[in-house]
């Protein structure tokens, strides 16, 4: 498989902009009891293979909605959206992505290995194949040896790592993450950010990541998409000049602080509309 090959390669070079996710003039209007609410308006976006793209903005800016559109969990009301060259729903049915929510959402009645096995069972992977994949992704998220434990025996950070392993198990090359570390404390979050970068470097996945933490967005991303609410739209797209390999200390560098500054200004500008 492609992903297995990519895994062998320690640092895949950023591929030339073959758009894995492409949105053109995307609109989404929710019909609510108080009238229509424009959650997304005129969103143009292109995410290349191997990119790490963060969506940042205040609540109500449509960042989660945009991610859910890419996952075909929401239906856009206008514009076009392709994932892997297909419609978002076709991509969903082709199991093109793994989705990680803010909560781990592990089944309490299944062990960690059982939880990772769940999507594999649904997708019809054979028993030996499942066992091999579970071992591999547990290793990727540094949970080797915890497969037999139950979710309640693990800390919050470990549970979230297990849920990432579950999203990785079936070799989708896109990872959609909706504030995956939002409920964790800052120390755990730092460690998981580092681990996620290492994992991204190792696997070469395309990652779309929703957050409302500026340092997290700057630390992780090759590109930062700043969004603002009412109507939800993109106000700024920042290409990060930081090297793909980033130690945690990079957050004290002048470069890092300059990008964070620009994100903060973008967020403030978005707010001055209301």
């Amino acid at each position: 498989m492609n992903a297995t090959a990519a895994q062998m390669d320690p640092a895949p070079a950023p591929a030339p902009a073959a758009a894995v996710i492409a949105a053109r003039n995307l609109d989404l209007t929710f019909q609510t009891r108080d009238g229509p609410v424009q959650a997304l308006k005129g969103v143009d976006l292109s995410i290349g293979r191997g990119d790490f793209v963060s969506f940042i903005g205040p609540s109500g800016c449509g960042k989660t909605t945009l991610l859910r559109c890419i996952a075909a969990l929401e239906q856009p009301t206008g514009g076009s959206l392709t994932v892997n060259g297909m419609s978002a729903d076709e991509a969903r049915r082709a199991r093109a992505y793994g989705y990680v929510f803010q909560a781990p959402g592990l089944y309490p009645w299944r062990s960690i290995a059982g939880n990772i096995s769940l999507p594999l069972e649904i997708m019809g992977f054979g028993k030996a194949d499942r066992r091999e994949r579970i071992a591999r992704v547990l290793d990727l998220v540094e949970l080797t040896g915890f497969g037999g434990k139950y979710p309640w025996q693990l800390s919050g950070g470990m549970q979230q790592r297990a849920s990432i392993a579950r999203a990785l198990a079936f070799d989708a090359d896109i990872l959609l993450m909706d504030e995956p570390f939002g409920a964790l404390d800052e120390i755990v979050r730092d460690r998981l950010n580092e681990a996620l970068l290492a994992l991204w470097e190792k696997t070469g996945k395309t990652i779309a990541f929703v957050t409302h933490s500026i340092p997290e967005a700057v630390y992780l991303s090759t590109r930062i998409v700043v969004m603002s609410p009412r109507p939800g739209r993109i106000t700024d797209v920042i290409e990060s000049p930081l090297h793909r390999h980033r130690p945690l200390e990079i957050r004290d560098s002048a470069e890092f602080i300059a990008i964070a500054q620009r994100v903060r200004e973008g967020l403030r500008a978005g707010h001055s509309y209301d």
Partner: peptide, 20 residues
């Protein structure tokens, strides 16, 4: 969220019933 996860795996209604 649980139902969305199942949807993201393109699970059939019988999978959703028996496993969730």
């Amino acid at each position: 969220m649980q139902l969305d996860l199942m949807r993201s795996w393109n699970a059939s209604p019988s999978h959703v019933f028996w496993r969730l």
